[in-house]
Design a protein around this nucleic acid. Structure first.
Lengths: 238, 238
DNA sequence: ATTATCTATAGATCTATAGATAATGC
DNA sequence: ATTATCTATAGATCTATAGATAATGC
C-alpha cells in the first residue's frame, strides 16, 4: 500500500498515507507531513485531542509553522487523522463480503474493526471529537445497510441470537476496541475478549463454540504490563 | 452516607466524601473542596487528567490558590479522586458475598463494578494515571483472592466456562465500563452489553440465558445521543 | 486568634502568524 | 522561480506562590 517511489523513514511503520486532495508536493514536505502525523498520533493517544500542537511539532523535529502550514487548525488535523484511519477501515469491506456464511461475515467485521481500533489508541479520542464536529459522520456509516442485512440473515439461519441488532454489534466492537487504550498487555488480549463476546451473541442452540484464542493474562503479566507503561511514561516525560 | 450535619448544595448529587485524613475543618472550606471535586470530575471526564487546574477552580467558582491549598499537586488531586471512587467501590463487597450462588456473585460483581465505572467518566483517565503513579495499587486488588475463589467455584458447579480466569473478568468489566465515556446514550446501554458478555461467559451446557435488558439503541436514538453530546460540548466551550 | 480565601504576579508554555531564509524541481 | 521551512514574536493561558484580606469558631 506504500507507494514504491517513496521510501518510508527507518523504524517508522509504513504509513499508507492517502495522497488525496492537494497533497504537499515537495519531497521534504511529504516527509515532514508524515512525521507530523506520526507524532500527532502518539501524543493524541497519550494526552487526548487537546495535546499540545507545539509538542507535536517538537517531537516531529519540525517547526510549529510547518504544522500550521499542513493543518490550518487543530480540528483540521483531527479530521485528517480521522480520514486516514477511515481509509484503512474501508479496505475491510471486501473481506467481509467474501466470507462464506453470514455469521463468518459478522465475525470478520467485528474482528477487523476491533483490530483497527486497538491498533491505534489515538482513535478513541479522535472519534469522539469527530462525533462532535460532524455528527453525521459515523466511522462505519458506509457499512450500515450491509451489516443490517448480515444481521438479518444470521438471525434467520439460526446462528445469531434474535434479540440483538446491528447497533448492539457496533457498541460491542467499540467496547473491545477500547482495550487499545489500556496498555500493550491488555491490547494483546482483545481477541480473547472478542471471542467471549461473540459467544454471547451466538444463538443458544447454535453449534458448539470454539476455544478461546491466546492465553489469559495472569497477574505476573499484568504487573509487567503496568510497569512497562510506567517506564514508557517516564521516558516520554523526559 | 452524607453527614446529616452538612447540607449538600442544591442540584449537586450528594457527595459521599470520606472525611478521612485531616479534612478541612471550616464549613466554607469543606464546601469549596466539594465544589472543586465536582468540577475536577467534570473537566477530567472531558479533557483527561491534563485538564487545566485553573479552569477547574474557575468552574468551582473558587480562586486557584484554594485548589492548591486543598491539593498540593495535580497528582495529589488525582489520587484523592481515586480514593473517593474506591471507597464507593468497596461498599460493593458485602453485596457480592450475600449472593446465593457463585454465578450470581460474579454477576453482581461485574454489574456493580461496571456500573461504578460507567457512572463516572472521569474514572478511566484517573485509573490510567494511577496505574502509572503507583503500579501496585489496582482498584479491585482487594477483591482478587475473593473473586478467584468465586471463579473456581463457578467453574466447578458448571455455570462458568472453564477457559477463562479472574483477570479475563476484570478486563471484560473494564471494557463494559468504558461505555461511560461515549456519551449518555451509549452509557445507558451497558446493561445490555454486559448481559451479552455474561452469556459468553456461561458454560455452553449451562441453563438457558435470560432475555436482554433494555432495548437496542436504534439509529434515531443514536443521532439524538450524538447531537446531545454536541450541544453539551458547545455549552461547555462557551 | 485562627484558618481559609482571594488578588496579583512571575515565569513557563501555548496558539497563531509575519517575515526572513533555505531547499526543491523545472 | 517556486515552494516550504525556520526563527522570532505577540498575546493568551497555564502553573505555582507570596502577601493582603476576609470568614469562621472558640
Amino acid at each position: 500500500m506504500t507507494s514504491p517511489t517513496r521510501k518510508p523513514q527507518d523504524g517508522v511503520p509504513a504509513l499508507s498515507v492517502a495522497e488525496k486532495n492537494a497533497p504537499p508536493r515537495r519531497r521534504d514536505a511529504r516527509l515532514n507531513r508524515d512525521r507530523l502525523i506520526i507524532s500527532a498520533r502518539a501524543l493524541i493517544a497519550q494526552h487526548g485531542v487537546d495535546a499540545s500542537l507545539e509538542e507535536i511539532a517538537r517531537q516531529a523535529e519540525v517547526g510549529v509553522a510547518t504544522l500550521y502550514r499542513n493543518f490550518t487548525t487543530r480540528d483540521d488535523l483531527v479530521r485528517n487523522l480521522y480520514d486516514l484511519a477511515l481509509a484503512e477501515l474501508h479496505a475491510v469491506r471486501g473481506e467481509i463480503e467474501t466470507a462464506p456464511t453470514p455469521w463468518d461475515a459478522l465475525v470478520v467485521y467485528t474482528e477487523r474493526v476491533a483490530e483497527w481500533l486497538v491498533a491505534d489508541p489515538s482513535l478513541p479520542p479522535i472519534l469522539r471529537r469527530m462525533a462532535q464536529l460532524d455528527p453525521s459522520a459515523r466511522p462505519a456509516a458506509e457499512f450500515d445497510g450491509f451489516i443490517a442485512s448480515l444481521v438479518a440473515r444470521a438471525k434467520k439461519d439460526g446462528t445469531l441470537r434474535r434479540d440483538v441488532d446491528a447497533v448492539d454489534l457496533a457498541v460491542l466492537v467499540t467496547m473491545v476496541g477500547s482495550l487499545g487504550s489500556l496498555g500493550d498487555g491488555f491490547a494483546g488480549q482483545w481477541r480473547r475478549q472478542l471471542s467471549i463476546v461473540l459467544d454471547g451473541l451466538r444463538a443458544a442452540d447454535a453449534p458448539r463454540r470454539p476455544r478461546l484464542p491466546g492465553r489469559p493474562l495472569n497477574l505476573k503479566d499484568y504487573q509487567a504490563t503496568v510497569h512497562g507503561l510506567t517506564r514508557r511514561a517516564a521516558r516520554a516525560a523526559r
